[in-house]
């Protein structure tokens, strides 16, 4: 365990191992998303209530899943960075934040588009939409805070603390928004009120969710690698790598 953690400390080791892992996740992401898209859009049966408009679910739900998971991963990376001072964890957290914000936006946008045929309006102060919007603001806060510091170390630690504070607050925000919604709005029509989704609809959704997760992992690996090169640019092994010298010569 400790040997493993110590290995993780080394950006060089991570750079090498991620090069091996990366293609696997890219292939998985491409295959799963392609399969899920074709299956979900063309072969899954139309919903008896919503017709074809329900197919937005194949983008909306995976994006919403990722939006929340990425914030949690960011907070965990922040904790790892603060406790063990593993730089790679902070690099991963750095590159995750924009993707998380983008996924939150995709979830909000697809929710808005979905709202037109189902609710007849682009936006409703629905509990989950509101909670998502707040999550977007949390992401933007973390990104803005990281950008505000001139010292990279301070920026990393500040963003880690904020991500951890945010992750403690997310469930609190979630439940209070739920409470607020039930007090203020009559529960008219809930989109996920049909837990008993038929198998033919559910399987492509699962494939899409897995595909989105693979995409997240693949993209994070790739962007962490470039972040390593950017931050470790003064190190010998990076310079050797860039100038194309074989490693034995060092």
């Amino acid at each position: 365990m400790w040997a493993f953690i110590n290995k993780l400390r080394s950006p060089k080791w991570f750079y090498a191992i991620s090069a091996k892992l990366q293609p696997f996740f890219w292939v998985a992401a491409a295959a799963l998303i392609l399969a899920g898209t074709v299956w979900g859009l063309a072969f899954a049966p139309a919903d008896y209530q919503q017709g074809n408009s329900f197919r937005i679910i194949y983008v909306h739900v995976p994006a919403a899943f990722l939006a929340q998971s990425i914030f949690v991963s960011m907070a965990i990376s922040g904790l790892v960075y603060m406790v063990w001072k593993i730089k790679v964890a902070d690099m991963a957290a750095t590159v995750m934040a924009p993707l998380g914000a983008a996924m939150t936006f995709v979830a909000l946008f697809s929710g808005a588009v979905w709202g037109v045929p189902t609710w007849g309006t682009w936006w409703m102060w629905d509990a989950r939409l509101t909670a998502m919007l707040i999550l977007l603001f949390l992401y933007l806060g973390v990104i803005a805070l990281r950008g505000a510091f001139t010292s990279r170390d301070s920026a990393s630690r500040a963003a880690s603390v904020l991500a951890m504070v945010g992750v403690i607050n997310i469930p609190i925000i979630k439940y209070s928004v739920d409470w607020w919604y039930t007090l203020h709005q009559p529960a008219t029509f809930t989109v996920t009120g049909r837990a008993a989704m038929p198998m033919e609809m559910w399987v492509p959704l699962l494939i899409m969710v897995l595909g989105f997760y693979s995409f997240f992992i693949a993209l994070t690996l790739m962007r962490t690698r470039s972040e390593i090169l950017r931050r470790e640019g003064t190190k010998r092994w990076v310079q050797d790598l860039v100038t194309g010298q074989p490693e034995e010569k060092r």
Binding site: I134, F137, L138, L140, G141, A144, L145, L162, V165, G166, N169, I172, I173, S176, V177, W179, W180
Partner: peptide, 14 residues
């Protein structure tokens, strides 16, 4: 304010 306002929402609700 950007950092803190989202965290204020539960207090505001209750």
């Amino acid at each position: 304010s950007l950092l803190v306002l989202p965290l204020y929402i539960p207090v505001l609700i209750f």
